[in-house]
Design a protein around this nucleic acid. Sequence first.
DNA 1: AAGCAGCGGGAATGCGCTTTCCCGTTCTGC
DNA 2: GCAGAACGGGAAAGCGCATTCCCGCTGCTT
Lengths: 363, 363
Amino acid sequence: MAASTLTEVARLAGVSPATASRVLNGSARTPGPDIAERVRKAADSLGYIPNAQAQGLAKSSSGLIGLIVHDIADPYFSAIARGVQTAARHQNKMVLLATTAGSPADERAAVAAFAARRADSIVIAGSRSARTTDQQGNAELAAELDRYCRNGGQVGVVGHAVVGAEADEGYHVVEVPNEELAAELARELAASHAGQFVIIAGPEGLLTSDDRVRGFQRGLADAGLSPADVLHTGFDRTGGYEAGVELAARIGTPNGSGGAGTEAAAPPRLCIFAVNDVMAIGATAALRSKGLRVPRDAAIAGFDDIETLRDFRPALSTVHLPLEEIGRLAVPAGSGHAAAGAVGVTGEVTLRRSTEPGGEAAS
Amino acid sequence: MAASTLTEVARLAGVSPATASRVLNGSARTPGPDIAERVRKAADSLGYIPNAQAQGLAKSSSGLIGLIVHDIADPYFSAIARGVQTAARHQNKMVLLATTAGSPADERAAVAAFAARRADSIVIAGSRSARTTDQQGNAELAAELDRYCRNGGQVGVVGHAVVGAEADEGYHVVEVPNEELAAELARELAASHAGQFVIIAGPEGLLTSDDRVRGFQRGLADAGLSPADVLHTGFDRTGGYEAGVELAARIGTPNGSGGAGTEAAAPPRLCIFAVNDVMAIGATAALRSKGLRVPRDAAIAGFDDIETLRDFRPALSTVHLPLEEIGRLAVPAGSGHAAAGAVGVTGEVTLRRSTEPGGEAAS
DNA sequence: AAGCAGCGGGAATGCGCTTTCCCGTTCTGC
DNA sequence: GCAGAACGGGAAAGCGCATTCCCGCTGCTT
């Protein structure tokens, strides 16, 4: 028993398909109430479900929003995805998901797939990469996006404009002030920390990471401090952990435990900035596994303010980002002319226990 | 400049649309190599992207997999979503996302929308509800699903068969042994805990929650203990927090802090089972906010083993569930006959610090 | 009373693609 | 050497729907 079609409904109702179509979708022309009723009843009794593909073909629009993320299980992306989903619902559209692990080639493929499905708009949430190995991929991605836009598609990008895209029409970006916020974080930390600063960064060339690093260094400079060491590693928990292991070695044996050959005087406490929360958590875990304690033996701060991590102890100092709102803003307005351009969001430096200056004293 | 069509490609290549179609999609009949080359070149130069809607319409299949979750930002669901996404990729299909907050009405609507898009299969990940207020909604959902299956759709359900669905063809469920695992958890905990047991459960009628509660009680009974108190609350962090506040009051002032009117002898330590990790975290936060410490003043265990929470301290005792695998298994096999039936996964009780018996003694 | 606007309904066309059917050609087998 | 098979290509018929155009009708104007 195949799904019933509009024609069947029309036949059952004793009207033409045209009329049936008119009553079942709010067309401009509304047939008489009696007929409408008949059609609706027929549709109901047949369990009629319009074929969205056919509708899309005829109207050339699909009610689809494409969403591209690196990894949907990453809390950063899933928070954004929630926002996108919310916005989609308001436009009553559905969201098509693609995960790409950040590979420009995969992203290009995803854009093409979305274009093939005639998605009304595309949201790209992942951080862009500027590595030379990705250069070609980025160019192709940009070309694909441009073509999509030229064909009337709308695209919203989180964070950074896609490298090399010629923002025609219908191309807008949600600007996240990563650099400014990181600078602010650095300044606030600098005010209360005497020790050295270290940055745990993502792979070089990952724009979001680079921005945050740059901002943090600038903030340090603003405070009259010299630049922090930068450790490049994976942009995830594992990366943070590995960097944490290295830093633990650098910090040395914690005071109080009877290590051999420890210096007599405690060195000034290290202050670690991990470019995202998940990395910060990983680093903290590594430190802990080496017998070090946060914030006693090292202060640590992250970025993003991931909700799931909010109950983590010591409470993680971080920069709050309105992730869900970012997701909402990233989806292009359904109706109306394409508002090309950029909207901004603001974050907030949120200092918590993990960078408490009193850390040295506390248990 | 509208997207170019197959016909344009064909014209440019000097062949018929039929031939062009045959070369651009692996049809059974492959045209001659010279012609194929010509067509491919034409397609390339035009930047041809096939219109998936039209293809779908013609082939009546869409390459879409519908995924229904309560909330994509919930780490439980996003982990499953990752698995689904992986499986989809292997079938090279795309996933369509719908979030419903667990409302059967919304789920029904989502299924209808998926059906309208002619999704090849649907995965329902959220826990089913058996509340009487949802009864009608559930029935409608079941009916919608049945219809979808009858029309050749495949559906995969995580956890529980949809109440009232008549498993025709193409309906399969990934069985999660919630009850057994909860029982096992209870038995293991019972072996080392002298104090009372309390369960923080989700809303009554939420099947996953009910199963876990039932299993835990059974495990307690197996160990010769009387049933635990059950607190029903929200199935999320907030619910856990609220329950935690109440339990904190029940536990009373922690030993050592100078509360007035504390009993002289420490009462046996409470052992709390929250039916999922996120709730357990919420409860822990509540306890902590009341000055209580885990596991010293209360032991606590969760369920799911959410990855993002793995660095939480005290490390949360829980039941590990292979969430990603569950997601993968939930998506119906793309090709081949619909393997109706059920596949099972196994979890593993994972005891960690939060229920350590030595908790009373440790700092 | 005749003419015209306006409306409710149907016939027909096309969206872009797949696929069946058909036809002309070349290759095979006896 | 010729019948028939096998093959390579094109014409055309949909897939299910929206929509334009058209037609007969009612109700109004002058």
